[in-house]
Design a binder for these strands. Structure first.
Lengths: 352, 352
DNA sequence: GTGAAAGCGCTAACAC
DNA sequence: GTGTTAGCGCTTTCAC
């Protein structure tokens, strides 16, 4: 059998093009590469053949030969979460700007999936793997992530933590986070300054670093004015709208006493707001309500929500820029971006 | 110089492992592949070497050799839009289930970027390229997309249109859409049945297929009850919350007469609701308001929004399942999923 | 300027 | 069972 001219899929190789143009494969490669002197005549013959065959060079083969498109990967729990989506957007935009392809994986919070994916990315020779969003804070998870960071690092790649805290001292990972604690502190300080003394802390997965940061800010703000927050006022769940709705309803049914609610996420706040309305409570007349994230629709709630603004897209952009621009290896960069409180109409002075 | 044992990046090859284990490269390949009989002793020696070197086979090289992980790509305008995000989630989940890697690209609606990306995906030998969300409806864009479909098809891949209408007759593309027109028709019929006669059509990019579908439903519902909608009542813009807010405010300032508003998107509805409130208008007391998409926070608006439910995640899942499972080539599958109206409290009977 | 040849890192016959 | 030998589709010396 003579050499086939296209594979089963109907794809042509560089040799098919070469044959049709009456030149060698190397010449085709040079024409397509662009960076090499080729006579105008040859070039046009080659291009004609390329067009006729609708030839597109196999990117994987190029990569093996050392001339591939660089690629980077990012992982998140749930692309449907507004803050995740914003970070993802930042990552994607910056990656494109830097000429990288993006591989994604959404894990629904499954640590094993995440690890498995990261290993695949190592096989793909991704320039960096970006873990987007808060993490489980269990030692075992941290330890596994640290191992991942080392593995990536020793194969010339990089682990980037975007929106989560650093791992142990010597772990080679780039981290770009924002000040969860500072934002929560400022927000709660504002609430306390308005005279509130019993602030419900609503929602958030208990073992999640994001919640923990916000919780620390909640606590420190209280202590700063000399009071210890009542543990009964902490109602964890998860970061969804439904969680906020359910928890708020339970708090009301249970007769919990509070004059303000700090929902750990705007989504949680949205659900909580509905539960409050359903119970006939007015916001901020009866109860003040504040969220976190400052996502778009937050100003369309009724009343518009007081919340904490986080530069999510910038976080994503910085994650890729930092990971890709690092000069020396092993430098464990750590950026901490600021947040700020946005006061709207869902909070008011306590009038006990 | 003797053969190097690891490249600049510190990565090892299959030969490094082979050498260290004292076997041939093929044996290492067989051990790692798993599907081939290898003596227990050899296997363990190989595995030890793999561990010691922290070796991970280069996926690109595997791909060239014909044993790669299949990959698929999807493109969307803006991952930050809730309905896009849901479709993306469906795509990603199903792709993972079917063992595919996902490449993403978000184009901000730029047709050239989209084409360029699709071409890259052809080079990557992606099994399918999924275009997620509505399209520009210009002939030139359609024609370019059709060419893309042919190019993909002739190289054994596939173009999938997810949430947008089919192209011309003979174009080899898989299309999974939902009934934009039917949903809008049902919703407007409901509004008309409630006695409304002047319904504002708010938001949406004019040349976007999604808006056009919804617009057709709006028109047909009117005609079904024997009235011709007033063109002055159509206020296009885009699909964002801000667009809804701005357009609604303008409509009010301009003294436009209407008793109901059909926002072409829940996001648009959210902005519109705020503008209505700001103008001192009550919903649904003074004006009925309805949206489209049934995104999560829709029930946390005040009042909860009447809208049209769309099975977005399912759309994404079907897009990949259909694209990957097609038996014969060239079959231009076309699925049309249904939608349904969700009546909540933002709409009421007209009491002119 | 252009071609032949030697890789890139892997898998898959084909031998023994 | 295991090693040898050809590829996979491309790039890149090295000659001429």
């Amino acid at each position: 059998m003579t050499r086939k001219t296209a594979d089963v899929q109907g794809r042509h190789t560089i040799r098919d093009v070469a044959a049709r143009a009456g030149v060698s494969a190397s010449t085709v490669s040079r024409v397509l590469g662009g960076e090499y002197p080729v006579s105008a005549a040859t070039r046009s013959r080659v291009m004609r053949a390329v067009d006729a065959l609708d030839y597109v060079a196999d990117a994987r083969a190029k990569a093996v030969a050392g001339a591939g498109t660089p690629t980077l990967a990012f992982v998140l729990d749930d692309i449907t979460g507004p803050s995740f989506a914003q970070m993802a957007q930042g990552v994607e935009r910056e990656a494109r700007k830097m000429g990288h392809l993006c591989l994604v994986c959404s894990t629904d919070g499954d640590a094993d999936e995440q690890l498995a994916f990261t290993e695949m990315m190592r096989a793909q020779r991704a320039a960096a793997v970006i873990l987007v969003g808060g993490a489980h804070s269990t030692p075992s998870y941290e330890e596994r992530t640290a191992r991942t960071a080392h593995a990536l690092h020793s194969s010339g790649s990089r682990l980037v933590l975007c929106g989560r805290p650093p791992l142990a001292e010597k772990v080679p990972a780039t981290v770009i986070e924002y000040d969860n604690e500072g934002g929560a502190h400022a927000l709660c300080a504002y609430l306390l300054g308005q005279g509130h003394r019993r602030i419900l802390l609503l929602g958030g997965a208990p073992d999640n670093t994001t919640l923990q940061g916000r919780e620390r800010g909640y606590t420190s703000a209280h202590r700063a004015v000399g009071i210890e927050p009542d543990p009964a006022l902490r109602l964890p769940g998860d970061f969804t709208r439904d969680s906020g709705h359910r928890l708020m309803r339970q708090a009301i049914e249970r007769g919990l006493e509070f004059s303000a609610v700090f929902a750990t996420t705007d989504m949680v706040a949205a659900g909580a707001l509905t539960a409050l309305h359903e119970a006939g409570l007015s916001v901020p007349g009866d109860v003040s309500l504040a969220g976190y994230d400052d996502i778009a629709f937050t100003r369309d709630l009724h009343p518009p929500l007081t919340t904490v603004h986080v530069p999510y897209e910038e976080l994503g952009r910085l994650a890729v820029r930092t990971a890709l621009n690092r000069d020396a290896d092993g430098g464990a960069e750590h950026l901490l971006l600021g947040t700020h409180v946005v006061v709207r109409e869902s909070t008011a002075r306590f009038t006990g």
